[in-house]
Amino acid sequence: MNERNDNLVPRGSSAGSSPLVCPKCGAPVAAAGTEAPLKCGRCGTPLSAGSPRAATSPIAAASEDRGEIILAIDRLSVLARNKPLISDVSLHIPVGKVTAIIGPSGCGKTTLLRSMNRMVELHHLQVKGTVRYLGQDIYGAQVNPVLVRRRIGMVFQRPTVFPTSVFENVAFGLRLDGESEDTVEKAVVSSLRRTGLWDEVKEALDRPALTLSGGQQQRLCIARALAVSPRVLLMDEPTSSLDPVATQRVEDLIFELKSDYTVVIVTHNMQQAARVADLTAFMYQGRLVEFDTTKRVFEQPKEKLTENYITGRFG
């Protein structure tokens, strides 16, 4: 499993000059380095060398020196009927770390998370700006959302087990690929082991998954997401429906997972962010206020707003 990390250096995606930006839809255009005329990858608008270049916001820039970036979000706005849910967010998420997004409810943290694997499209929201996965715009014209979600998995607030057996739940994604029974079984077992669920359910693989406890169901959902070998795991308040013991187990799991996966977790629970996250982003009213190491965000926040939130003056 570790071998995957070897090829994660996003060449040229965060270093060097900032990319050209399409004046029409705001998508970045990779400088191909050839004489071929440049065209926007999303909407096809032809570009000249004089086209505007992406302005890298200070917050995003500050995170550039934290190692390889796997998800680069630049100037991202998500709008519902022209009303912005999040506006102008730039956030670069480094590989192999746990990044937490915190903020009061309604601040857009879940929308931000869901824009990272194109789940926002299901709600027919309008997306402006870019989310680049290893340098490639995930909203690009040739990119299919199915492939994005294969690479960038997601776990939801409440456990979302399908009404089938424990085994089939984990095998769900693999079955779609038509993998052989052997491969499926190996992958299911290894995912279940990875989430620490194996010892608890190995006797009960054929039981309906809905008979598991809430905490087990949530870990089953994590196993299901891991089974299709994503690189990034997005978690939307994964413990909000769990009791403290089950929450503890999921947090331990998140901590272990970061050796192989990049984890982005949305949480309303600041203690949780402090416990599991290497980096923390604080959002307020659709804007990213501060993004830094968890230690710094909690101990010496730069912004007054962050400090007020952390110290419990609102939220």
Binding site: N7, V9, P10, L134
Partner: peptide
């Protein structure tokens, strides 16, 4: 380990079955 070049193509480079 082999380092893949042009990393972002993970999102467009598909297997026959995926296509």
């Amino acid at each position: 380990m082999k380092v893949t070049t042009g990393l972002g193509d993970e999102l467009t480079h598909t297997s026959g079955r995926m296509r």
